[in-house]
Amino acid sequence: MTAKKNASALEKQGASELPGLEAPVLGPTGRPLRVFPQPAPLKSHGPARIISLCNQKGGVGKTTTTVNLGATLADDGRRVLAIDFDPQGALSAGLGVDTHDSLTIYDLLLGTEKDPHNVIRHTSVPNFDIIPANIDLSAAEVHLISEVARETILARVLRKVSDEYDVILIDCQPSLGLLTVNALTASHGVLIPLECEFFALRGVALLVETIEKVKDRLNPAIKLDGILATMYDSRTLHSREVMQRVVDAFGPEVLETVIGRTIKFPDASVSGTPITQFAPDHPAANAYRQLARELVFRGAVA
């Protein structure tokens, strides 16, 4: 049987290991490299599984992952809603959504707008919508601090639309404040993008501790869906060492898919489109396709 037929046979069983003549090909995580198959179409949609993309360190790839993971899941037939939960509004800009003089997530949190349908905006990707944000969101924590059950406000907002989507992705701001606690309280799972750099690694333990506190006190159903290594550069010893330390510390919670460092990501952001549209044949686009399919394979997404 040829190598191609071997791969095809394995793929029918789920995720397939890339065949080698003597030993499996190892990926950056040190595990056998697998190709995750395209998921089967859904027969119905909803209710959504809500996933927060969270890390208190900035610049680790939360927004990039939200944009491209959401677009890829939508390409695979899932209905996706992204929540821009960062006052910088990078997710809205990255999807080409203008937030000037428009309703945002801030209006829903404060209750000045009751219906999320009036705030949801369509993106250039079919089946991929967004609730945008702008700098107004920076005042939300001050206004919400005296609210009753302030940690559950976002959960109450999303409850009104969750039946219409298969997955809701929340792009959190780089902090562990009230907004992030709101996101974690509303979520079924957490995906932690982690830059392959030493200082990014240091804060993961604190973030996991925060997730455990939310699980214990506010949301018993929340779970860690995985740690996603981003900005990986196999040419540098530092990236490889950080990857090894992450795998040693978190084991199978580290996703097999790894996102490499490339200039294509900022180029795609400037164009206001996901990399799967901007450069569909680029290795980075293929990496996000594999990420979406790995999450489906793991059961984190329907």
Score class of each variant (00 low, 15 high):
residue 256 E to G: 15
residue 6 N to P: 03
residue 194 L to S: 06
residue 56 Q to G: 01
residue 278 F to I: 04
residue 28 P to I: 10
residue 90 A to N: 15
residue 198 F to Y: 14
residue 211 I to W: 02
residue 178 L to F: 06
residue 67 V to N: 06
residue 40 A to V: 14
residue 49 R to N: 09
residue 71 A to W: 00
residue 300 A to C: 13
residue 95 L to F: 05
residue 162 S to H: 11
residue 45 H to Y: 01
residue 123 T to A: 04
residue 20 G to E: 05
residue 248 D to W: 04
residue 98 D to N: 15
residue 66 T to F: 00
residue 266 P to K: 05
residue 60 V to K: 04
residue 157 V to W: 04
residue 105 I to D: 10
residue 205 A to D: 12
residue 289 R to N: 07
residue 86 D to G: 03
residue 250 F to C: 09
residue 28 P to D: 03
residue 200 A to E: 07
residue 104 T to C: 01
residue 213 K to M: 14
residue 196 C to I: 10
residue 249 A to H: 12
residue 204 V to I: 14
residue 232 Y to E: 02
residue 166 D to Y: 00
residue 113 E to C: 15
residue 167 V to C: 11
residue 44 S to E: 13
residue 64 T to I: 10
residue 197 E to F: 02
residue 202 R to W: 03
residue 264 K to Q: 13
residue 66 T to D: 07
residue 144 L to N: 03
residue 64 T to Q: 05
residue 66 T to R: 05
residue 192 I to R: 02
residue 38 Q to W: 06
residue 194 L to V: 12
residue 156 R to S: 13
residue 104 T to E: 04
residue 262 T to E: 00
residue 220 P to H: 10
residue 74 A to H: 06
residue 15 A to W: 03
residue 150 R to N: 02
residue 182 N to G: 05
residue 52 S to G: 09
residue 245 R to S: 12
residue 277 Q to L: 15
residue 205 A to H: 06
residue 250 F to R: 00
residue 47 P to D: 10
residue 260 G to V: 08
